[in-house]
Computed example of a mutant assay.
Amino acid sequence: MGKTRALILLCAAVGICHCRLVTVSTGPLLRVEGQPLSIRCDVSEYEGPREQDFDWKVSRGTQFINVISTFEDRFSDHSLEDRIRSGDISVSRLADNAVELRIQEAQISDSAIYRCSTPSTDSVFSGNYDADVQLQVVPNSLIVAPDAPIPAVREGGSIRLLCNVSRNFMEGIYLSLTWSVKKGSSLLEDLLTFGPDLGVTVGDDYMRRYTDGGMRLEMGNGVSHNLVLSGAMPDDQGMYICTARLWTREQGAWNRIQEKIMEMGEVTVTPTANSLSVQVQDDSTLSTGETLLLTCSVSAEPLWIWR
Protein backbone atom coordinates (compact mmCIF):
# COMPACT_ATOMS: atom_id res chain seq x y z
CA MET A 1 0.00 0.00 0.00
CA GLY A 2 3.05 2.31 0.26
CA LYS A 3 3.33 2.31 -3.53
CA THR A 4 -0.28 3.53 -3.84
CA ARG A 5 0.26 6.39 -1.40
CA ALA A 6 3.45 7.39 -3.23
CA LEU A 7 1.54 7.55 -6.52
CA ILE A 8 -1.11 9.80 -4.97
CA LEU A 9 1.59 12.22 -3.81
CA LEU A 10 3.35 12.06 -7.19
CA CYS A 11 0.18 12.85 -9.15
CA ALA A 12 -0.57 15.77 -6.85
CA ALA A 13 2.98 17.09 -7.08
CA VAL A 14 3.31 17.05 -10.87
CA GLY A 15 -0.29 18.02 -11.57
CA ILE A 16 -1.14 15.10 -13.88
CA CYS A 17 -4.81 15.25 -14.78
CA HIS A 18 -5.18 11.53 -15.43
CA CYS A 19 -3.01 9.45 -13.11
CA ARG A 20 -4.83 6.12 -12.76
CA LEU A 21 -5.20 5.08 -9.15
CA VAL A 22 -6.26 1.57 -8.11
CA THR A 23 -6.96 1.03 -4.40
CA VAL A 24 -8.09 -1.94 -2.30
CA SER A 25 -9.18 -2.34 1.32
CA THR A 26 -6.38 -1.48 3.70
CA GLY A 27 -4.86 -4.65 5.11
CA PRO A 28 -3.97 -6.92 6.57
CA LEU A 29 -7.58 -8.14 6.69
CA LEU A 30 -8.56 -10.62 9.43
CA ARG A 31 -11.52 -12.87 8.71
CA VAL A 32 -13.03 -16.03 10.27
CA GLU A 33 -13.19 -19.48 8.70
CA GLY A 34 -16.64 -20.36 7.36
CA GLN A 35 -17.82 -16.73 7.36
CA PRO A 36 -18.52 -14.54 4.30
CA LEU A 37 -15.95 -11.91 3.35
CA SER A 38 -15.49 -9.22 0.74
CA ILE A 39 -12.57 -7.16 -0.53
CA ARG A 40 -13.31 -3.86 -2.26
CA CYS A 41 -11.36 -2.45 -5.20
CA ASP A 42 -11.75 1.06 -6.71
CA VAL A 43 -10.18 2.83 -9.66
CA SER A 44 -10.12 6.60 -10.17
CA GLU A 45 -8.46 9.28 -12.34
CA TYR A 46 -8.70 7.16 -15.48
CA GLU A 47 -9.47 7.81 -19.15
CA GLY A 48 -11.68 5.78 -21.44
CA PRO A 49 -15.08 4.16 -20.77
CA ARG A 50 -16.86 5.11 -17.58
CA GLU A 51 -17.39 1.44 -16.71
CA GLN A 52 -14.04 -0.16 -15.95
CA ASP A 53 -13.15 -3.86 -15.80
CA PHE A 54 -11.33 -5.63 -13.00
CA ASP A 55 -9.24 -8.78 -12.65
CA TRP A 56 -8.62 -10.51 -9.32
CA LYS A 57 -5.59 -12.72 -8.68
CA VAL A 58 -4.24 -14.51 -5.60
CA SER A 59 -0.71 -15.43 -4.63
CA ARG A 60 0.39 -19.05 -4.68
CA GLY A 61 3.96 -19.17 -3.54
CA THR A 62 5.90 -16.71 -5.69
CA GLN A 63 3.26 -16.52 -8.42
CA PHE A 64 -0.23 -15.06 -8.79
CA ILE A 65 -3.01 -17.21 -10.23
CA ASN A 66 -6.22 -15.92 -11.79
CA VAL A 67 -9.31 -15.85 -9.58
CA ILE A 68 -12.13 -14.01 -11.39
CA SER A 69 -12.69 -11.18 -13.86
CA THR A 70 -15.52 -8.82 -14.81
CA PHE A 71 -14.44 -9.10 -18.45
CA GLU A 72 -13.21 -12.64 -19.19
CA ASP A 73 -15.54 -15.58 -18.49
CA ARG A 74 -12.70 -18.11 -18.74
CA PHE A 75 -10.27 -16.09 -16.67
CA SER A 76 -10.29 -18.31 -13.54
CA ASP A 77 -7.64 -20.91 -12.75
CA HIS A 78 -8.97 -24.48 -13.00
CA SER A 79 -8.29 -25.05 -9.28
CA LEU A 80 -11.00 -22.46 -8.44
CA GLU A 81 -13.60 -23.34 -11.05
CA ASP A 82 -15.83 -25.40 -8.72
CA ARG A 83 -15.99 -22.62 -6.11
CA ILE A 84 -16.78 -20.03 -8.76
CA ARG A 85 -19.40 -22.23 -10.41
CA SER A 86 -21.15 -22.76 -7.05
CA GLY A 87 -21.08 -19.04 -6.29
CA ASP A 88 -18.75 -19.43 -3.32
CA ILE A 89 -16.36 -17.03 -5.06
CA SER A 90 -17.85 -14.16 -7.06
CA VAL A 91 -17.28 -10.56 -8.07
CA SER A 92 -19.96 -7.92 -7.59
CA ARG A 93 -19.97 -4.53 -9.27
CA LEU A 94 -20.66 -1.71 -6.81
CA ALA A 95 -20.28 1.14 -9.32
CA ASP A 96 -18.75 1.82 -12.71
CA ASN A 97 -15.38 2.15 -11.01
CA ALA A 98 -15.73 -0.18 -8.00
CA VAL A 99 -16.19 -3.92 -7.39
CA GLU A 100 -16.07 -6.41 -4.53
CA LEU A 101 -14.47 -9.83 -4.51
CA ARG A 102 -16.79 -11.99 -2.41
CA ILE A 103 -16.23 -15.36 -0.73
CA GLN A 104 -19.30 -16.94 0.87
CA GLU A 105 -17.45 -19.38 3.15
CA ALA A 106 -13.86 -18.43 3.84
CA GLN A 107 -11.31 -21.21 4.09
CA ILE A 108 -8.02 -21.19 5.99
CA SER A 109 -6.31 -21.82 2.63
CA ASP A 110 -7.75 -18.51 1.36
CA SER A 111 -5.12 -16.71 3.45
CA ALA A 112 -2.92 -15.02 0.84
CA ILE A 113 -2.14 -11.77 -0.92
CA TYR A 114 -4.91 -10.66 -3.30
CA ARG A 115 -4.25 -8.44 -6.28
CA CYS A 116 -6.85 -6.29 -8.04
CA SER A 117 -5.87 -5.18 -11.56
CA THR A 118 -7.50 -2.91 -14.13
CA PRO A 119 -6.73 -3.17 -17.85
CA SER A 120 -5.50 0.12 -19.32
CA THR A 121 -7.95 2.39 -21.13
CA ASP A 122 -5.72 5.47 -20.86
CA SER A 123 -4.08 7.34 -23.72
CA VAL A 124 -0.94 7.67 -21.61
CA PHE A 125 0.31 4.98 -19.24
CA SER A 126 0.48 6.67 -15.84
CA GLY A 127 -0.33 5.84 -12.24
CA ASN A 128 -0.86 2.30 -10.93
CA TYR A 129 -2.93 -0.44 -12.53
CA ASP A 130 -3.06 -2.91 -9.65
CA ALA A 131 -3.07 -2.98 -5.85
CA ASP A 132 -2.43 -5.75 -3.30
CA VAL A 133 -3.90 -6.60 0.09
CA GLN A 134 -3.08 -9.38 2.54
CA LEU A 135 -5.91 -11.58 3.83
CA GLN A 136 -5.62 -13.83 6.89
CA VAL A 137 -8.40 -16.32 7.63
CA VAL A 138 -8.33 -17.58 11.23
CA PRO A 139 -10.01 -20.74 12.63
CA ASN A 140 -13.60 -20.47 13.84
CA SER A 141 -13.20 -20.88 17.61
CA LEU A 142 -16.14 -18.83 18.90
CA ILE A 143 -18.42 -20.82 21.26
CA VAL A 144 -21.56 -19.33 22.82
CA ALA A 145 -23.21 -21.47 25.53
CA PRO A 146 -25.70 -19.53 27.69
CA ASP A 147 -27.21 -20.96 30.86
CA ALA A 148 -31.00 -21.21 30.81
CA PRO A 149 -32.57 -18.67 33.21
CA ILE A 150 -35.10 -19.72 35.83
CA PRO A 151 -38.32 -19.89 33.77
CA ALA A 152 -40.72 -18.37 36.32
CA VAL A 153 -39.99 -15.31 38.43
CA ARG A 154 -42.34 -13.48 40.78
CA GLU A 155 -42.80 -9.73 40.33
CA GLY A 156 -40.10 -7.89 42.21
CA GLY A 157 -37.63 -10.77 41.95
CA SER A 158 -34.50 -10.87 39.80
CA ILE A 159 -33.75 -12.32 36.39
CA ARG A 160 -30.16 -13.51 35.91
CA LEU A 161 -28.96 -13.96 32.34
CA LEU A 162 -25.67 -15.85 32.20
CA CYS A 163 -23.89 -16.01 28.84
CA ASN A 164 -20.75 -18.16 28.50
CA VAL A 165 -18.45 -17.25 25.63
CA SER A 166 -15.06 -18.66 24.71
CA ARG A 167 -12.70 -18.17 21.75
CA ASN A 168 -9.05 -18.26 20.80
CA PHE A 169 -7.63 -14.81 21.46
CA MET A 170 -5.90 -13.13 18.54
CA GLU A 171 -4.46 -9.64 18.28
CA GLY A 172 -6.67 -7.37 16.21
CA ILE A 173 -9.92 -9.27 16.85
CA TYR A 174 -12.36 -7.95 19.49
CA LEU A 175 -15.48 -9.38 21.15
CA SER A 176 -18.85 -7.84 21.91
CA LEU A 177 -21.83 -9.35 23.77
CA THR A 178 -25.44 -8.26 23.44
CA TRP A 179 -28.38 -9.31 25.64
CA SER A 180 -31.78 -9.00 23.97
CA VAL A 181 -35.38 -9.97 24.59
CA LYS A 182 -38.23 -10.84 22.25
CA LYS A 183 -41.68 -10.21 23.70
CA GLY A 184 -44.40 -12.07 21.85
CA SER A 185 -44.52 -11.08 18.19
CA SER A 186 -42.71 -7.77 18.74
CA LEU A 187 -39.26 -7.00 17.38
CA LEU A 188 -36.11 -7.94 19.25
CA GLU A 189 -35.17 -5.36 21.92
CA ASP A 190 -31.52 -4.90 22.88
CA LEU A 191 -31.01 -4.51 26.62
CA LEU A 192 -27.26 -3.99 26.79
CA THR A 193 -24.12 -4.46 24.70
CA PHE A 194 -20.61 -4.78 26.08
CA GLY A 195 -17.73 -4.13 23.66
CA PRO A 196 -16.08 -4.31 21.25
CA ASP A 197 -14.16 -1.34 22.71
CA LEU A 198 -14.80 -2.26 26.39
CA GLY A 199 -17.64 0.27 26.47
CA VAL A 200 -21.27 -0.36 27.39
CA THR A 201 -24.23 0.56 25.17
CA VAL A 202 -27.70 0.43 26.75
CA GLY A 203 -30.97 0.13 24.84
CA ASP A 204 -33.05 3.31 24.82
CA ASP A 205 -35.92 1.70 26.76
CA TYR A 206 -33.55 0.45 29.47
CA MET A 207 -31.31 3.46 30.07
CA ARG A 208 -33.16 4.70 33.15
CA ARG A 209 -33.24 1.22 34.64
CA TYR A 210 -29.49 0.86 34.08
CA THR A 211 -28.63 4.22 35.64
CA ASP A 212 -30.91 3.45 38.62
CA GLY A 213 -29.12 0.13 39.22
CA GLY A 214 -32.08 -2.02 38.21
CA MET A 215 -29.99 -3.57 35.46
CA ARG A 216 -26.34 -4.38 36.03
CA LEU A 217 -23.55 -6.17 34.21
CA GLU A 218 -21.41 -8.67 36.12
CA MET A 219 -18.25 -9.54 34.22
CA GLY A 220 -16.95 -12.95 35.19
CA ASN A 221 -13.65 -14.72 34.53
CA GLY A 222 -13.49 -13.75 30.87
CA VAL A 223 -15.85 -16.58 29.90
CA SER A 224 -19.04 -16.17 31.99
CA HIS A 225 -20.88 -12.86 31.85
CA ASN A 226 -24.05 -12.01 33.77
CA LEU A 227 -26.74 -9.44 33.12
CA VAL A 228 -29.04 -9.06 36.12
CA LEU A 229 -32.50 -7.49 35.98
CA SER A 230 -33.71 -6.74 39.51
CA GLY A 231 -37.20 -5.64 40.44
CA ALA A 232 -38.73 -7.84 37.74
CA MET A 233 -41.94 -6.56 36.17
CA PRO A 234 -44.58 -8.39 34.12
CA ASP A 235 -43.32 -6.50 31.06
CA ASP A 236 -39.95 -8.26 31.46
CA GLN A 237 -41.27 -11.62 30.36
CA GLY A 238 -40.19 -12.95 26.99
CA MET A 239 -37.50 -14.96 25.21
CA TYR A 240 -34.00 -13.83 26.18
CA ILE A 241 -31.17 -14.04 23.67
CA CYS A 242 -27.38 -13.72 23.86
CA THR A 243 -25.41 -12.59 20.78
CA ALA A 244 -21.62 -12.72 20.47
CA ARG A 245 -19.87 -10.82 17.69
CA LEU A 246 -16.25 -10.58 16.60
CA TRP A 247 -14.89 -7.32 15.16
CA THR A 248 -11.82 -5.84 13.55
CA ARG A 249 -10.84 -2.19 13.30
CA GLU A 250 -10.47 -1.14 9.65
CA GLN A 251 -10.13 2.35 8.15
CA GLY A 252 -11.01 3.82 11.54
CA ALA A 253 -14.33 1.95 11.80
CA TRP A 254 -15.50 -1.29 13.40
CA ASN A 255 -16.06 -4.14 10.93
CA ARG A 256 -18.06 -7.18 12.10
CA ILE A 257 -16.51 -10.45 10.93
CA GLN A 258 -18.58 -13.03 12.85
CA GLU A 259 -21.87 -13.31 14.74
CA LYS A 260 -23.41 -16.12 16.79
CA ILE A 261 -26.93 -15.83 18.24
CA MET A 262 -28.19 -18.20 20.96
CA GLU A 263 -31.56 -18.33 22.71
CA MET A 264 -31.15 -18.37 26.48
CA GLY A 265 -34.73 -19.30 27.39
CA GLU A 266 -38.23 -18.04 28.04
CA VAL A 267 -38.97 -16.20 31.29
CA THR A 268 -42.42 -15.44 32.68
CA VAL A 269 -43.05 -12.91 35.45
CA THR A 270 -46.08 -13.49 37.68
CA PRO A 271 -47.69 -10.31 39.06
CA THR A 272 -47.85 -10.27 42.85
CA ALA A 273 -51.62 -10.00 42.80
CA ASN A 274 -51.94 -13.11 40.64
CA SER A 275 -49.82 -15.21 42.99
CA LEU A 276 -51.98 -14.49 46.05
CA SER A 277 -54.87 -16.59 47.27
CA VAL A 278 -57.33 -15.08 49.79
CA GLN A 279 -59.88 -17.13 51.75
CA VAL A 280 -62.35 -16.03 54.45
CA GLN A 281 -63.20 -18.78 56.94
CA ASP A 282 -66.60 -18.53 58.66
CA ASP A 283 -67.95 -21.83 59.86
CA SER A 284 -69.38 -20.45 63.12
CA THR A 285 -72.97 -20.70 64.27
CA LEU A 286 -73.71 -17.85 66.67
CA SER A 287 -76.46 -16.99 69.05
CA THR A 288 -77.76 -13.50 69.54
CA GLY A 289 -75.23 -11.31 71.37
CA GLU A 290 -72.19 -13.52 70.71
CA THR A 291 -69.00 -12.16 69.06
CA LEU A 292 -68.39 -13.02 65.39
CA LEU A 293 -64.79 -13.91 64.51
CA LEU A 294 -63.78 -13.93 60.82
CA THR A 295 -60.48 -15.53 59.74
CA CYS A 296 -58.84 -14.36 56.55
CA SER A 297 -56.07 -16.61 55.09
CA VAL A 298 -53.62 -15.24 52.53
CA SER A 299 -51.20 -17.57 50.71
CA ALA A 300 -48.89 -17.29 47.73
CA GLU A 301 -48.11 -19.85 45.06
CA PRO A 302 -44.54 -21.22 45.35
CA LEU A 303 -42.43 -19.67 42.59
CA TRP A 304 -38.69 -19.40 42.03
CA ILE A 305 -37.37 -16.09 43.24
CA TRP A 306 -33.81 -14.80 42.77
CA ARG A 307 -32.50 -12.37 45.31
Rank of each mutant, 00 (worst) to 15 (best):
T4N: 12
R5M: 12
R5L: 10
A6K: 15
I8K: 14
I16F: 10
T23K: 13
S25R: 08
S25F: 05
T26N: 14
L29K: 15
L29D: 09
E33I: 04
Q35K: 08
Q35E: 07
L37A: 00
I39V: 01
S44H: 08
S44C: 06
Y46H: 13
Q52N: 00
D53V: 00
D53W: 07
V58T: 09
R60K: 01
Q63F: 00
I65T: 04
V67E: 04
I68H: 05
T70E: 13
T70V: 03
F71L: 12
F71P: 00
E72L: 07
E72N: 12
L80V: 03
I84C: 08
I89L: 01
V91G: 11
N97M: 02
A98V: 09
A98T: 10
L101R: 08
A106W: 00
S111Y: 02
A112M: 01
I113G: 00
Y114I: 04
R115F: 12
S117D: 03
D122S: 08
S123F: 08
V124S: 09
V124Q: 13
N128S: 09
L135N: 11
V137F: 07
P139A: 14
S141G: 06
I143A: 04
I143T: 08
V144H: 10
P146N: 11
P151L: 09
A152V: 12
E155Q: 15
E155R: 10
S158A: 10
R160N: 13
R160A: 13
V165W: 04
S166W: 11
N168R: 14
M170N: 13
M170Q: 14
M170W: 11
I173L: 07
I173N: 04
Y174N: 04
L175T: 04
L177M: 07
L177E: 00
V181S: 03
V181L: 02
S186A: 08
S186M: 10
S186L: 04
L187K: 07
L187E: 06
L191S: 10
L198C: 02
G199F: 01
G199D: 08
G203L: 07
Y206E: 04
R208Q: 12
R208Y: 11
R209V: 03
Y210M: 11
G214V: 02
G214H: 09
G220E: 00
S224W: 05
S224K: 13
H225F: 10
H225G: 01
H225K: 06
N226C: 08
L227G: 09
P234I: 11
C242V: 07
W254P: 04
W254T: 12
R256M: 01
E259H: 02
E263T: 10
E263D: 00
M264H: 03
V267K: 06
A273K: 15
N274C: 13
Q279K: 15
S287P: 01
T288K: 14
T288V: 13
L292N: 14
L293Y: 12
L294H: 14
T295K: 12
A300D: 06
A300G: 15
E301D: 15
P302M: 12
L303C: 03
I305E: 02
